[in-house]
């Protein structure tokens, strides 16, 4: 872990989880569920909105929808990468076509959950990318 994420985690601050998804139902459900599990949550309806947000720097883990309006999930992650550090991220997607699977493989096969997923699987994925288990 590098950059501000490493700093955040090492400082023992409670991690804020950023949800980037263009679907309101998904944002609301995910946000409530993660809060019920004790996380702090910020939601964004697009990659652009997130990148422009002052909250960006306080986020320690992203949940990113692959298909966003505008910039897609992978491009969003690359933007953060270029800014200096690769944040831990869990992808989610409502699509399961060959195209999506290929895109995931090209992006280095990050963890990706297919909607609708079991909520607890999301918790273990977050713990896994944050190396908390």
């Amino acid at each position: 872990m590098r950059g501000w994420f490493a700093t955040l985690v090492q400082m023992g601050s409670p991690v804020t989880i950023g949800i980037v998804d263009d679907d309101l139902s998904v944002r609301k459900g995910l946000s409530r569920f993660l809060r019920s599990a004790g996380w702090r949550v910020d939601t964004f309806s697009s990659a652009e909105e997130c990148l422009a947000s002052p909250q960006l720097l306080s986020i320690g883990c992203f949940i990113i929808d692959v298909h966003l309006g505008g910039m897609n999930g992978f491009e969003f992650l690359r933007h953060l990468d270029d800014a200096g550090s690769r944040p831990p991220a869990v992808f989610i997607t409502a699509h399961d076509e060959a195209v999506t699977r290929e895109a995931l493989t090209n992006a280095g096969s990050p963890i990706c959950l297919r909607k609708p997923f079991a909520p607890d699987a999301l918790l273990s994925s977050i713990q896994s990318v944050l190396h908390l288990e």
Partner: peptide, 12 residues
């Protein structure tokens, strides 16, 4: 999409 919302809300 709505199913993902239903599942996470219910679990929450």
């Amino acid at each position: 999409q709505p199913l993902a919302g239903i599942l996470t809300n219910a679990q929450g």
